Computed example of a mutant assay.
Amino acid sequence: MSRPQLELVCPAGTPAAFRAAIDAGAHTVYCGFNDETNARNFPGLNFSADELATSIAYAHKKGAHALVAINTFPRAGAVELWHRRVDDAARLRADAVILADIGLLDYASKKHPDLRLHLSVQAAAANADAIRFYAKAFGVKRVVLPRVLTVQEIAAVNRDIEIETEVFIFGGLCVMAEGRCSLSSYATGKSPNMNGACSPASHVEYREEDGDLVSRLGGFAIHRVHAGEAAPYPTLCKGCFEAGDYKGHVFEDPSSLDAAELIPQLAEAGVTALKIEGRQRSRSYTESVVRNFRKAVDDYAAGRPVVAGALRGLTEGQTTTAGSYRKTWR
């Protein structure tokens, strides 16, 4: 028995990764400009206006869509850059822009009334009242739901709204208010919320101490592992801490989201699109993950069983979790 086709929304941090995602079967690719308007603002990643124009044209030629993430919050007195990037996305014929800031949503809806608006997960709209506000005030057509909802809660939200919902299906987990992390800002002076850089590599240090490998972020020791053990990337929300007699991962374990086995339940909950995280990943990573999940959504649409767990080797710490979909985190 056939079922509705879920839209697969895939990441691209470079033009090469963009083409790889399209060629591997992405229905939609999201990317960003190479500046602080983009919540993955890392050296060597992202797109110039010319690169984005070429990439969008490639997507449209292949029958796919391109979304532009302008999902950080403008700095006081410097909103012109963010306005210019909204204008650029509209001029370059992006299929939608992904926005979080209320001021930018207002600007885009008035200046470019025909430009489709998606609400970023950065907006943290986790209930029907908030989502209806964005839809009514700015004409938002889709909301990316925060990664703090169970499948049952997603179904309840969808029953009370009239716009599309998109949820994360694979990749890194962020539990600190969806990227608006004061911990990373405190440790590095770089705000994920405004500068687009969570735990930037420029502030990461690995050093051998007493036979252990210690990883630091902004001078703070985040992990200590014995020689030969895998050392996870030092992000504060997944750090290993000592609190009294307890030693472990207080906020979240260093693992990746893989909710492939929940595709049928998410579809039944009314979800329109499944989103893969990973704009900072390599082209080969993008190709492998997209190809695997395109098969999964096609299998679901055709009424075939969805096979999960094939991408464990590409996950953080080679471990996976269903995250808050099953509310097993502390």
Rank of each mutant, 00 (worst) to 15 (best):
M1Q: 13
R3A: 10
R3N: 14
P4T: 13
T14W: 04
A16F: 06
A20T: 01
A21T: 04
V29P: 03
A49Q: 08
D50A: 07
T54A: 05
S55C: 13
I56T: 03
A59H: 04
A59Q: 01
A59P: 06
A64S: 09
F73T: 02
V79I: 11
E80A: 08
W82K: 00
D87T: 02
D88S: 10
R93A: 06
D95H: 12
A96R: 05
V97F: 00
I98S: 01
A100F: 03
D101H: 03
D101R: 02
Y107R: 00
A108H: 00
V121K: 00
A130H: 02
A137K: 09
K141Y: 00
I161R: 09
I161Q: 06
I169T: 01
G172T: 12
G172W: 00
C174R: 03
E178G: 03
S184C: 05
Y186V: 08
M194R: 14
A197N: 10
C198A: 14
P200E: 14
D212H: 13
D212N: 14
V214W: 12
I222C: 12
H223R: 11
H223M: 12
R224M: 09
H226Q: 13
A230M: 14
P232D: 03
T235S: 13
G244C: 05
Y246N: 11
D253Y: 11
S255V: 15
L257S: 07
I263P: 08
E268D: 15
V271P: 02
V271C: 01
L274A: 04
L274K: 06
I276W: 03
V289I: 12
R294D: 04
K295E: 12
V306G: 05
G309S: 04
T320L: 05
T320R: 07
T328E: 15
